[in-house]
Amino acid sequence: MNVMTLNDAFSIQRSVVGALIMRELHTRYGRDNVGYLWLFLEPALLSLLVALIHVGNPNSPATSIDPVPFGLIGYTTFIMFRALFTRADAVIETNTPLLYHRQVTIFDMVLARGLLELAATIVVLAVLLGAATLAGAAMPPARPLALLAGLACLWIWSFGLSLLVCAATNENRLVTKFVHPISYILLPLSGAFYMLEWLPQPYRDIMSWFPMTQMFELIRHGQFAGAEATYVQPVYLVFSCMVVLFLGLLAVRAVRRHVHIG
């Protein structure tokens, strides 16, 4: 009797997720026109437009923060969250035939999309911040590890929520109607385009308990030398991400029994 080792299981997992990523790339972007490049061009163009709005604004409260990288980081990272959150509702519906293969799971499908969005975000950030630095509109990250830690927290949070959305929308299609409105509401609440120190009390303390605002504070702390991590609570932040991820894993595991592939 052959017993699958942990290494064999990880090898199969890597192959499955890799194949799903390539399928997602081809399905979403195809080979017409700019093809796969649109994965990076779309967030790059939108982020540049947002950043340019802040250029030359003498009334900006962020006098010690360069406006171009501030806009680039805020919008590029929020795009990653929005893409994972809003596209999770169709994961099972569009990929149900793949579940005929025993090695493919709902978790693999969501993970493949999540890794694709993470890779796109990292590349776009690196390219745009590099270009802004060469143009004299930005400085290299002051604390690269803090920036990566903030981005990792945001990705785990987004991935956990995408698992919950995937499971909830499969159980009740009415939930789908609320996914996009929620993402619009979270845009101004997330902290992507403001710093907590700009807010008056008591709103500053209230918003500091929302995990996403702490994530963006940590990302900006990593990028800007003048951005302090006053409102970042690492233990609370990690705990929040782990709770959301754990609930997402439980939800996907529960919904798998209700998915009919026949």
Rank of each mutant, 00 (worst) to 15 (best):
M1G: 15
T5I: 15
L6C: 01
L6V: 15
N7R: 14
N7P: 02
D8P: 03
A9W: 08
Q13G: 05
R14M: 09
R14F: 13
A19H: 11
I21S: 06
M22T: 08
R23V: 14
R23F: 01
E24A: 07
T27K: 14
T27H: 02
T27D: 00
G30L: 09
R31F: 15
R31E: 08
Y36L: 12
F40I: 13
A44F: 01
S47N: 04
V50E: 01
A51P: 01
L52H: 09
L52E: 11
L52F: 14
I53V: 12
N57C: 13
S60K: 06
S60A: 13
S60F: 11
T63Y: 05
D66A: 12
P67I: 07
V68H: 07
V68R: 02
F70G: 00
L72S: 04
M80T: 02
F81W: 00
R82Y: 02
L84S: 04
L84F: 01
A88I: 01
A90W: 01
V91C: 00
T94F: 01
P97C: 09
Y100T: 12
H101F: 10
H101A: 13
H101T: 14
R102T: 14
Q103F: 12
V104D: 02
L111V: 13
L111S: 08
L116Y: 08
V123M: 07
V124S: 09
A126L: 05
A126M: 09
L128I: 11
L129M: 13
G136D: 14
A137Y: 15
A137H: 14
P140I: 15
P141C: 05
R143Q: 09
L145I: 08
L145F: 12
L147I: 10
L147K: 01
G150D: 00
A152R: 05
A152T: 01
G160R: 03
S162Q: 03
S162F: 00
L163E: 05
V165N: 02
V165C: 04
C166H: 12
A167T: 12
T176Q: 01
F178A: 00
V179A: 01
P181G: 03
I182P: 00
Y184M: 12
L189G: 05
G191C: 04
G191H: 00
A192P: 04
L196Q: 05
L196S: 12
W198H: 12
P202R: 12
Y203V: 10
Y203K: 05
D205R: 15
D205Q: 15
W209P: 01
T213M: 10
Q214P: 03
M215V: 03
L218A: 11
H221S: 06
G222E: 03
Q223C: 02
F224V: 08
F224L: 10
A227E: 05
A227W: 03
A229N: 15
Y231F: 07
Y231T: 09
Y231W: 15
Y231R: 13
V232F: 13
F239Q: 09
M242A: 15
M242H: 07
M242L: 13
V244H: 08
F246K: 04
F246W: 11
G248V: 07
L250Y: 03
A251H: 06
A251S: 11
A254E: 12
R256N: 02
H258Y: 06
V259I: 06
I261Q: 02
G262V: 09
G262W: 04
